[in-house]
Amino acid sequence: MRAAGAIGKVAALSLAGLLTMAAVSNDPAERLADPAKEARARALFREVRCLECQNESIDESEAAIADDLRHVVRQQVKAGRSDADIKRYLLDRYGEFVLMRPSFSLGNAALWLTPFVLVLGGGAILILRSRRPPATPPLSAEESAALAALEAPHIAPSAHDGHGSAA
């Protein structure tokens, strides 16, 4: 199934005119002279989406649009703008789609919170249930006898050794 992703990537590559120019994120001709600024730009690349690609950041993509965006980001880093400013600039121009990390907004609350609610809520329910006394009726005489037999030493346990519900 990865093949489909590969084809998506290739579609983006050929659209970008791969044959004439394959631009990559670490192209020496594009690099900023200051290594610290270049490192900042590269970190930002990983947060910005190549708009025409299938889920690729501009750090990964060889598409022309990714090259343009990398140029924009590098110029702004060079001009001394902060990461937040650059992201805001991209956001205003291209919308939320351009950022690989969805914003912590009301519209994305379900996205960010569901997994943790599920784990915490599920865990809480399980712990409460395990503390609650088992909701089974008291043992019948027959069951008490079976239990006594089970608890007696040196007697092999029989198959029905559990009662009530758990999990």
Binding site: R46, E47, R49, N55, S57, G95, E96, F97, V98, L99, M100, R101, P102, S103, G107, N108, A110, L111, T114, P115
Partner: peptide, 26 residues
């Protein structure tokens, strides 16, 4: 997490026509 990260952009786009990206940082 993985299911939401994969499907949420589709759901959100269908409901509000807003496109978002869910990538590695998420």
């Amino acid at each position: 997490t993985v299911a939401l990260g994969t499907l949420y952009p589709l759901i959100r786009q269908a409901l509000s026509a807003e496109a978002i990206s869910v990538g590695a940082p998420f």
